[in-house]
Design a protein around this nucleic acid. Structure first.
Lengths: 201, 201
DNA sequence: TAGGTCATTGACTTTGGGTCAGTGATGTGC
DNA sequence: GCACATCACTGACCCAAAGTCAATGACCTA
């Protein structure tokens, strides 16, 4: 990377971190693009060299924590599928708490926005979740933990819907419950029930 | 109701039905307030005598089908709690299919919008779901179907998160799966697992 | 050193949500 | 039945803020 590219990377990073700060405190609608660029020390136009729309920066904020989870899971060995997924749920909800309610709200709204651009190559809008979870399931089938007839895609959808349901519910209730507590309860009861029919013991 | 009030009611109904038609076809962002009022045969300003914000009309669209579900459940007797909830899930997903993906998307986005106004008196934003589901659970405890120690509020949250999770997932996948099929599978497996610890046989 | 690239700028355009003073039909009190 | 109040309705207007783009100059390459 040459000087120019490094400086560009820094500008983008500065924008993302400033946005995280401002959005976490005030919420998406209460912060406009100029608030972010002014605080980041750049001009308004610069924002649009890095993001097509105001909304896109929120999806970008979540990119780092999510890729961290992915890395973690790659490295994990010796865990069965339920343990792996439990870990995934915990880490997901930790991200939820880290981002705070305002950012989570907007993130979910962005993912539901028909105008938002899919971030990964295959055109799906599932952030990282879909492919990551699918991989975990496929591995479990290879390992002989799960039956070969397991409907991988359906199960992946179900797991994602559980994650997003929890998050949506948490945002709607204005953070009325503890995401981690709930997750714990959830994983012990429902996760097992979902996989029960396909588990090989 | 006098002439004036009837005419006002008709205007509002006309706006809601026109909006349903347009939003279902084109999506929320592709339709502006003037499109709706023009097609409904009124002036733009009229829209704002009935709705504070453009977004509010979407929540209104869902009001009729939801109150229908509530009525239905009131009348139902002789069903146990799992059957009742299964029915609720089915009817909910029927509404989802009826409204179509565009309206569901916007509806979920509205519920997550911190600026949207709570529709019921107690200030909660759960549409009708929360109170309705809570009532079902409380009734089941009275009937001796569920243990007295059942954590009603937590369970209600969990059920709502399942509903909203399914819907969100369906919208995000651009209607990739059949909501009703999924619901069936869901109710048979997870719903039972959730209530297992509290069911009295 | 010359010529091209590209991140950056900020004044400008655009868009569409939302406002409000005015109008007339309908309702109410005497 | 008359006068006054009410209120649904109108549409020209306002305006915030998202998004654009021609100009700039620092940096890169040959």
């Amino acid at each position: 990377m040459n000087k120019r590219q490094i400086s560009a990377q820094n500008t983008k990073r500065k924008l993302v971190s400033t946005a995280l700060e401002l959005l976490k405190e005030k919420g998406f609608d209460a912060v406009n693009v100029e608030d972010i660029t002014k605080k980041a020390g750049v001009a308004k136009g610069t924002f649009y060299t890095y993001f097509k729309r105001k909304e896109d920066i929120v999806l970008d904020i979540s990119r780092v924590p999510f890729s961290e989870i992915a890395e973690e899971l790659e490295k994990m060995h010796g865990l069965d599928i339920i343990e792996k997924l439990t870990h995934y749920f915990h880490r997901f909800m930790e991200c939820v708490e880290y981002g705070g309610i305002h950012i989570c709200r907007q993130w979910t709204r962005d993912v539901l926005d028909p105008n938002s651009v899919p971030e990964n190559k295959d055109g799906k809008k599932w952030a990282y979740d879909y492919n990551m979870l699918k991989k975990i399931l496929e591995l479990a089938i290879q390992n002989g933990e799960l039956a070969k007839e397991t409907p991988v895609e359906l199960m992946t959808h179900i797991i994602i819907s559980e994650l997003y349901g929890m998050m949506t519910c948490w945002c709607m209730s204005d953070g009325e419950f503890e995401p981690l507590e709930w997750t714990e309860k959830f994983c012990k009861v429902q996760l097992k029930a979902i996989f029960e029919p396909y588990l090989i013991k």
